[in-house]
């Protein structure tokens, strides 16, 4: 029996991270099955004016290439996407991405709240939100939106985080389904993936 209450209704996974999350992200991306089913959408705080390099750095360790989607690109199964520099990454109804250059939110563009909020609006209860280490409050409201629409919320165990402000802010704002160390997040995703017919 799994310690997790798993379900194959989910359509996408969104992961938010900021300061201190890079290592956790690369651990997760390197440990997933090569044919992992669900799309993974990453929104990580990054330098606004450096367009190149980050996606390549993530791809080196990842089981599959990480791509920065174009505006209105369709969200496909089994792909790993990263919010591009200096754009907000939104999820559009009809399962495409939509980019935006609107105001920074929580001093961030891309803002994790915006990605999580728009993903929750589109995927409703079929979304899993994971929030990792970070030094500000971005992502907390987005996690609340996921919970409010019936999705599943996971934070990295604040004890393990290099900077625990971000997961703690989410915990204080909304109900968190699982508080997990990176290794356990991997275990969760691996077990979840087994529920999807290949």
């Amino acid at each position: 029996m799994s310690r997790f209450n798993l379900d194959n209704k989910y359509k996408a996974i969104v992961i938010g991270g900021s300061a201190g999350s890079f290592q956790g992200i690369t651990q997760i991306l390197s440990a997933l099955p090569a044919d992992f089913s669900l799309p993974i959408i990453l929104c990580l705080h990054r330098l606004k004016h450096v367009r190149n390099g980050f996606v390549e750095a993530l791809s080196i360790k990842s089981i599959k290439p990480v791509v920065e989607p174009y505006d209105k690109e369709g969200i496909k199964k089994g792909k790993v996407y990263l919010a591009p520099a200096n754009y907000h990454l939104c999820i559009e109804l009809g399962n495409t991405f939509s980019l935006s250059t609107e105001e920074m939110y929580n001093n961030s563009r891309p803002s994790i709240d915006i990605t999580l909020d728009t993903a929750a609006y589109t995927f409703k209860d079929k979304l899993i939100g994971i929030l990792l280490s970070g030094a500000n409050r971005d992502g907390a409201l987005g996690m609340k939106r996921i919970k409010d629409r019936g999705g599943l919320t996971i934070i990295q165990d604040p004890e393990e985080c290099m900077i625990d402000t971000m997961p703690n802010a989410a915990k204080n704002l909304t109900e968190i389904d699982y508080t997990l160390k990176v290794k356990e997040i991997i275990q969760f995703l691996v077990e979840l993936d087994k529920l999807y017919f290949k």
Partner: peptide, 9 residues
């Protein structure tokens, strides 16, 4: 208009 951003506006 793209619904995701129109909604936020």
């Amino acid at each position: 208009y793209a619904m995701s951003s129109f909604r936020r506006r």
